[in-house]
Write a protein that binds this DNA or RNA. Structure first.
Lengths: 269, 269
DNA sequence: TAATAAATGTCGTTT
DNA sequence: AAACGACGTTTATTA
């Protein structure tokens, strides 16, 4: 059985199919009228309506209403299931050991049960992450400031980790905090705490630079008050620069180096 | 047409069904082998594999692999769609005005197209939120501390909003920051910035209290260093207390007051 | 296991 | 539209 699709099944039919599908660790899509109850870190109740329930082979469970990006209720991977027919309803209970969280979905009508054995070994690549921004600055420190020299990345302090620690062209110790989106007050406070932590370690003068595409309004006054600096830097531009750099390096390998080195270069994330 | 289900349709059949389903603002479930490309705030590429695509009436778009809670790619509500048959593939493009984000899904094989007109007017209630914790403290200030008296909630400062501002039994101004889960360094810094902002407004002595179920280790040293205080408080307990309080009040209404007041009480979230 | 910070975070609320 | 903070945030990484 690669796929099983039941249109408007009876609750008995649905029950059997769902039970088997979960036992065989398939991907289940169930559409129907249901209520949802959750008890765990919080509690929630959802009165009747038509929704889509997804149960994945890894135990992830999602209930999607016909609107919104986010599921209205869910259970993360690793859930344990119990399926029952009670009082003319198909109950699916997803239990999570951690936190003793329980999600109970009760269908009184099922429009579809579809069960699939999906094979997905595709590779996923994401560009223009904060990590890409950091790499771009390390490859080309002038992106941050002319004369900037990185010393260390992810330096632990206090605790917490400084994205990039370096010195400016005057030799002044400089803490760099990177954000891939508009920096808000929280980001400023984060940078401030790193600078303060470092001040406790040394008497050298220390600059704090926040590198991000933009700075929220309320964050601007904070920056000034805390004597920190802002450097506009977009994740897209960083990703482009990285790609160009790596492209160049790849070309160098192709022209000069042997097979093994080319593979190494090609396997970079 | 309330529902249309196509098992293993040809790409032509799938194309027609998807086109119509999107035009009629239905809920679409499409299962098949696909690649996914995203360009927007970041960029991503996903090589071929079998996945579930959900398109909602509001334009929300989700691509789910057979694992993980989160979709591998998505588009938030409001997307605009373009469906095409190109080079033997069914392309579905979800375009988002904001940020010019583009999500392109290309199926070379479709296992299922299921289209539904879902009606969901159910109401969703969540208990034990941070808001519930705040209400519980306002109803019973001794939850925070014996003799505590709330003065104001969501007081704006600097900017930012103080969850609860009050005075302790000695009359000392007290800033309360509430977290529904273990308070981390960011929460401590948030409280600190509120206390500092308030200090700029008055010369009175000010206490800062962080009310949360627990305090992360790294946050403890920060609390001490910044002269702030921690009060253990669980969202569950607050929700229980709130429920009891409201239950009691409801009972009072039922026993004493007329129809109109009962309705008001009953309509509380 | 706990803690720390990123995320294409999303979502509601308010200015 | 921008900003601010909550979220049952989840997820990855690291001590």
């Amino acid at each position: 059985m690669r796929q099983l699709v039941l249109e408007k099944p009876s609750l008995d039919e649905a029950y059997e199919a769902v039970r088997n599908g979960i036992a065989q660790r398939r991907m289940l899509l169930i559409v129907g009228n249901c209520t949802v109850d959750y008890v765990g870190r919080a509690s929630s109740k959802l009165s009747p309506g038509e929704r889509v329930l997804i149960i994945k082979p890894d135990g992830s469970t999602l209930i999607h209403r016909p609107r919104d990006y986010a599921p209205v209720n869910w259970q993360p991977p690793g859930s344990i299931f119990k399926t029952r027919l009670v009082d003319g309803c198909l109950h699916i209970r997803a239990y999570r050991r951690k936190g003793g969280e329980v999600l109970d979905i009760a269908f009184d009508r099922v429009a579809l049960v579809a069960i699939f054995h999906l094979i997905d070994d595709g590779e996923f690549y994401l560009y223009a992450s904060e990590e890409d921004m950091k790499q771009a600055i390390l490859h080309d420190p002038s992106l941050l400031e002319e004369g900037f020299k990185p010393i260390e990345t992810e330096k632990p302090v206090e605790p917490g980790f400084i994205d990039i620690l370096g010195v400016d062209k005057e030799g002044v110790l400089t803490v760099v905090e990177i954000k891939r989106r508009a920096a808000d007050r929280a980001a400023v406070l984060q940078l401030k705490s790193y600078v303060d932590a470092l001040r406790a370690e040394t008497r050298r003068r220390i600059r704090g630079i926040l590198a991000a595409p933009s700075l929220a309004k309320g964050a601007q006054s904070l920056m000034a008050a805390l004597d920190l600096e802002f450097k506009p830097l977009s994740p897209r531009r960083c990703a482009d620069i990285l790609r160009a750099r790596r492209g160049r390096r790849l070309t160098e390998y192709l022209n000069v180096k042997g097979e093994k080195r080319r593979e190494e270069s090609g396997s970079q994330p």
